[in-house]
Design a protein around this nucleic acid. Structure first.
Lengths: 229, 229
DNA sequence: GAATAACAACTACGCCGTAAGCTTGTCAAC
DNA sequence: GTTGACAAGCTTACGGCGTAGTTGTTATTC
């Protein structure tokens, strides 16, 4: 028999933090669908039901790991100019969501926002109000930016080809998806491979929105002929 | 025993179309999580396994009903000015997604886009190319707009209070969510109740993006000081 | 009326979340 | 030491899920 090193604390191992950390790791490595109570117990070398000592249930685990991800988002400093604050926090959110590909979908399906999200929102709102935006404009500015963050991130994650694959592999995927029926779309897909990359495209759309907000705040008339009465 | 009315066509009832229609209806009425093979069989008065005669599996059902939703989206006429075409198709998509609250999440999780989506994309791309946009600009314009459509719709659907509830009920929800800890956020939430409503706010962000594209096409310099070298 | 092809039903397997009750390790009080 | 309380973890069980494989059953065709 092998000599056992001090096997003292043979129990008292789990904790809410350990459970959530394991769940986060599992979701990152094997996808959110791999996160089941049984699988999680297996990872932690514990029966599934033991997890219920530390966590209310699966929903609580999803809430918990979502909160961990939101905690990775950089809360903008309150003394920044509004545009810089919004831009920086949007990029930070985008990056956090890309680090945890399952998170966008989970976050959007969660009711009550969680504390980290609230703190973040509160900071952004304060900055925008301090910059002189009206309450309705704050809401609109934030919603427009946030829509872009979540929408763009989800869109990129849903691409049928992974840009981290080798170009050859990705090209094969493109062939499969578009065949030869949609040459216009195909050339756009290839652009995604040869273009400047996801971060630049993300910031392109982001700056478009920020430009619009800035111009609107400066009192410039809207360009859209369709919104005039 | 009750008299049975002519029970002639006791079989030969199911078809792919009927299965998908029932699934769509079920998803709309009871949420996407209610769509299981067993439940669906129950609705169609058939055993779950019988569905496999007409449909490859659950994934195929999700693909199928997603396709039905995308089919509801108005494909923009090719002779429209690009801005009007993009705006109209964005609003049409937004509305279709709101009609089927489960669809945004399902669509984003689906690999291969489906024929309706392809046709739609192809039309938009053609219009933008005809308007003189370069291929990269077409991709960017479309991605920016689509990000807003999906992001905004998901955001609205994830709101913890339903604007279709009575104002009193919604106000109670707001109290529950925000408590008294985040007065700034609270006032923004109340704005959602008293403001001009979801469609207007959606179009606000949409026009912001369209403005940006239009200005960029006109050769106007970007306003962002952060993107200059 | 018999053959045939289409179709629904059934059985079974291995997953899932979790309610309820049980065993066991730990430690303080005596 | 012994005892007892208590919490951590285990076991069992239930109803649900998707679906592979097999077995009726029926409607149509000759």
């Amino acid at each position: 028999m092998p000599v056992e090193p001090p096997p003292r604390p043979r129990r008292r191992k789990l904790s809410r933090e350990l459970v959530l950390a394991a769940a986060l790791r599992l979701a990152d490595e094997e996808g959110i669908e791999a996160v089941s109570m049984r699988r999680l117990g297996q990872v932690l070398r514990v029966e599934a039901m033991s997890l219920y000592r530390h966590v209310a249930g699966k929903e609580a685990i999803l809430d918990g790991i979502s909160e961990l991800v939101m905690g990775e988002v950089e809360v903008p400093a309150r003394n920044l100019p509004w545009r810089q604050a919004l831009r920086q926090s949007a990029i930070s959110t985008h990056q956090a969501l890309l680090r945890h590909p399952w998170a966008s979908a989970v976050l959007e399906s969660r009711r009550n926002p969680g504390e980290a999200r609230m703190t973040y929102l509160d900071a952004v709102v304060s900055i925008l109000l301090d910059a002189g935006l009206s309450t309705p404009d704050v809401a609109r500015a934030f919603m427009a930016v946030d829509s872009h963050v979540y929408g763009f991130t989800l869109m990129v994650l849903a691409w049928p080809f992974d840009l981290r694959d080798s170009p050859d592999e990705a090209r094969i995927m493109i062939d499969e998806v578009f065949g030869h029926a949609y040459p216009g779309l195909r050339s756009m897909a290839e652009l995604a491979l040869t273009g400047p990359g996801v971060p630049v495209e993300f910031e392109f759309g982001l700056d478009l929105t920020l430009d619009g907000i800035e111009r609107r705040l400066a009192g410039a008339p809207r360009a859209s002929p369709l919104r005039s009465p």
